[in-house]
Design a binder for these strands. Structure first.
Lengths: 136, 136
DNA sequence: CTGCAAGTTAATGTCAACATGAGGTCAAGC
DNA sequence: GCTTGACCTCATGTTGACATTAACTTGCAG
């Protein structure tokens, strides 16, 4: 399988696969006259990379997981990533609820809506000292 | 309220607020001897920006929503953003399920696990033509 | 044999969202 | 009057994940 075929299969540009290779994520099975050749296993690997990216991992993080030797090491990395995903889920759910309210509320200047202020406050970690004089 | 105080309140660097201003997201209420002055309303605005960023919006998108005049225009923007958040939720949930399986599975080379291959396939939009000879 | 599409490396450009640094201003405290 | 610290503008640097371009080689059709 040549680079063009593999790239087209996932609607990627070939240089993306070369980039991933340069980043240490995807080493071709062989070279034929200098051209890269890939196998079925590489298809799974590319799928894995795409899925991991969709979950918000950086190429560096993906490389760590793919390179991890042994179950223990990989488990630790995955644990961290799992927690991170859970955090993101909460974060996005909060933003979503906020938007739902904004659409219902319909006040001309939504920053003046007391409901909105309450939601924003509760959804954001405040670094206020307790007893601060400026009450938002 | 000076820029340093507002920034510290959210654990931001002052130059971040200046950057947001340069991007058209946050205009100070006034200037005193050239120094920016902010009000309580700006606190809400900063919170809004932070929350929107946490939801994955770009500064440009945030500016559009904040600048939107009229309920209709804002509603349209929010609708789009709401759909986008829903998509992200699904995406992240899929990645999370994948990771959960990886942690349970524990095969030495997880890319060989048939369960894994099935999950990755189902979780990724494939651009294969039906009847393609290479069956992953 | 001649083209041409697809591959190669290497260098450089892009984009967003800041970060950093230079050089200057301003009010307060000693 | 002099220092200190927070502020100012303007310019340039950084990061991650590519995108683009240049200049070259190779595989295959006609």
């Amino acid at each position: 399988m040549r680079i063009g075929e593999l790239a087209e299969r996932f609607d990627l540009a070939p240089h993306v696969l070369r980039h991933w290779e340069a980043m240490g994520l995807l080493t071709p099975a062989a070279r034929v006259n200098g051209r890269r050749r890939y196998t079925r296993d590489h298809v799974v690997r590319v799928l894995t990379i795409i899925r991991a990216k969709a979950g918000g991992m950086s190429l560096e993080q993906i490389r760590e997981v793919l390179d991890a030797t042994g179950r223990a090491e990989r488990r630790a990395l995955l644990q961290a990533q799992h927690a991170e995903l859970e955090r993101k889920l909460q974060e996005i759910a909060a933003s979503k609820r906020l938007i739902e309210h904004l659409m219902e509320c319909g006040a001309e200047d939504f920053t003046q809506c007391p409901d909105y202020r309450r939601m924003v406050e509760s959804a954001t970690a405040l670094h206020d000292e307790p007893g601060d004089t400026c009450v938002i």
